[in-house]
Design a protein around this nucleic acid. Sequence first.
DNA 1: TTGTGAATGCAACTGAGTCGCAACTGAGAG
DNA 2: CTCTCAGTTGCGACTCAGTTGCATTCACAA
Lengths: 149, 149
Amino acid sequence: MALAARGSLAEALSLRGIRLTRQRRLLLEVLDNAPGHLNARELLQAARRTDPTIDRATVYRTLHLLKTSGLVDELDLLHLEGEEHYYERRRTGDHVHLGCPQCGTISEFETDLVLKLAQEVARREGFTATGIRIEVRGICKACSEAQVR
Amino acid sequence: MALAARGSLAEALSLRGIRLTRQRRLLLEVLDNAPGHLNARELLQAARRTDPTIDRATVYRTLHLLKTSGLVDELDLLHLEGEEHYYERRRTGDHVHLGCPQCGTISEFETDLVLKLAQEVARREGFTATGIRIEVRGICKACSEAQVR
DNA sequence: TTGTGAATGCAACTGAGTCGCAACTGAGAG
DNA sequence: CTCTCAGTTGCGACTCAGTTGCATTCACAA
């Protein structure tokens, strides 16, 4: 019951006819409870704290599944933190990632310009957007204030 | 003279005090004349047609240089074409990449929403954007027409 | 023309992500 | 509740993009 009540990702999966294994359930739980963005290695490490036998390949296969099901988004966060990919649950609110190379911080920013972009692309180009990834590189407020000081 | 007249990238480099070697000149030329987006491997192959001795490491080091100088942008084109990175000269007009997973086509789309986004991020967040990468995944016009048919 | 710090080629390395295969298991049929 | 099997997992080997250390070469300022 607790699982069913909280397991929105799990629910979404079984709705799509995707078999819900112990490993997938665990990975979904970790993704759901993760504070920020996780890469594959971090996801594996976190999952292994609960089930030490889970394998790297399973993590990659599950991420692939979730990506193609549209349940998670893949980001690279402008490679400020490394060369790998990062993953986050797809949410309802459209948001943009702001990355500051000076301090390495990634923050998020909600704006309806994302929706407007999807509409403009549809209107002018006949292109039906299913996912939009926006990553902005620049100097964050804290860093620019520190410089002026 | 011919070089100086066309070599805007080269010019930009020497303005920044970056030494202009034979290899860099060649890579810049290839990037300038490339029809679309190139990944590191393609850039190396193209450059080797002129200078077969140029090395992979030099390509990566030069790309790193151009990225941090803000002269080229790094994209992954939503990994429709592969897992590597793609590079393109930074241009004046802001544009967005549209990728259709069905046919694998990447197209471009110019819109002033990019500029508006930069302004909104600055106004509401105090974040000074230096580069914006927008990649839209979806169904292109041709594919959606083919489906309806 | 020369001196020197920066850049190159080379070869070895790193690490993210993939793949084939044998063993295992979720969940639907009975 | 049990049986069955396609789908999934763990494992180990593999691929390949990108990096690094080092000896050699080169751009360019003086």
